[in-house]
Write a protein that binds this DNA or RNA. Structure first.
Lengths: 240, 240
DNA sequence: ACCTGAACACCGTTCAAGT
DNA sequence: ACCTGAACACCGTTCAAGT
């Protein structure tokens, strides 16, 4: 059950024919492992086996497991591409950013927990990725303190959504057959007069209407920002 | 470095004088351990040592480590208290829920990652806790499909905020001296013409204005919900 | 019934050694 | 310089045994 990769190698420099171990090759293998088998499958020993190498060899390129995880977060952030602004209005640009970030999470579901929790690692990479968001909010004419808060809000929302999505489909919550049934089963184990609002709401819903809706969240956030900007914001520019 | 708790015990029933091991005592000790030393400190062996018991004894009350973690999530949810509705309007009731949920996260920072990611465990406990939120949104006159989406939105936002808060202060991000300095240090390692919007925004900010603001997020969300309700919602009731 | 102890199959990482 | 192997101090969990 190791990997069909390679037999034991001899100590010393790599021989002429074989490609040497590098940070890049290690992270590539680690990402593949995490994407395919989940974060729990990533151990230094397993990773080494996958690379056909002694576990300790990895430590010459990355200082430890934490560094492997951080490296993974950085490399997926580096992949993130926000569509160029063009002549779009600030709201569409905020949407573009939020969707690009969501897509990053969607591309690596097994890494989402790491992405949203390892801010230290994400900080530098996220800096690069966040500039378009700050440009959009700045272009909207919000004052600086509102720009940061609005940016936090958008990012927090993507995090919350990604988390719900990822735990939903690995747990049994957003599963194919039956979030509604899950709820009804829960209701049945409680007195009839408990949870009146939830019973009423879920009772009136189809399975499809249960699915989380990323765009709805964006609509609400943007409408809210327009509104609140009026109070605190002294909006100045960009009619579009 | 174990714990100053107890020496080895003998096999067999607990003696008359000592309190027997129970699910409750185990979870209590586990929560204390997690609160004080973090989630990484929670191992079955360490937990057993803390209880003065053989590691395997725990398995007679909880089927495994996953069950301990789920039990922890459930017990903190059980502590959650949302202020009663009184004659407050739906928006204040949504605020009450969101604040209560945030406070739960704030009370157990080391458990936040577990809370936001273990939806399976949270489902039942969260059901109980979420009824006030559904009542508020239902009372607002939103149609059922909007109630679930609005509820998801509020919960996702609290999750995102809690995550940012918890990783902020355990990493070095929201740290006492200097989020702003951290950013400036990052900027200095990049070309002068990079990140124009972020440089402008952060340049105009005081340290205090950097701090995340939970209430701002709530303001935006509620304003957005009022707005969007007008489009899709056929609001019917509760002028207040 | 409830608790224990040895054992199994793993971990991450240090350190001294090989080439 | 780069890789290795044994060793250390941990893990979660199974299983047979104690009282």
């Amino acid at each position: 059950l190791g990997g069909e990769k390679a037999g034991r190698r001899r100590a010393g420099r790599p021989r002429a024919g074989q490609e040497p171990l590098t940070r890049g090759r290690i992270l590539e293998a680690a990402l593949k492992l995490v994407d395919q088998e989940g974060i729990a499958a990533l151990s230094m020993r397993r990773l080494a086996a996958e690379l056909g190498v002694d576990p300790m060899s990895i430590y010459h390129h990355l200082p430890g497991k934490q560094a492997v995880l951080s490296g993974l977060v950085k490399s997926v952030f580096a992949e993130m591409r926000v569509p160029s602004a063009g002549d779009k209005g600030w709201q569409d640009r905020v949407r573009d950013f939020a969707r690009a970030y969501r897509d990053l999470a969607r591309a690596h579901p097994n890494l989402v927990l790491q992405i949203v929790s390892d801010t230290a690692a994400a900080a530098e990479a996220a800096l690069e990725a966040s500039e378009p968001l700050y440009q959009a909010l700045d272009a909207a004419g919000f004052p600086p303190h509102m720009v940061v808060r609005a940016a936090d809000l958008v990012v927090d929302h993507v995090h919350g959504f990604a988390l719900a999505w990822v735990t939903g489909f690995s747990g049994r919550f957003n599963d194919q057959p039956g979030m509604l049934e899950t709820f009804e089963a829960l209701f049945e184990r409680h007195p009839d007069d408990s949870f009146p609002a939830m019973r009423r709401v879920f009772g009136a819903l189809t399975e499809e209407e249960m699915h989380p809706d990323f765009e709805f969240g964006l609509d609400v956030l943007l409408a809210g920002l327009r509104d609140v900007a009026g109070d605190h914001g002294e909006r100045t520019s960009n009619p579009r």
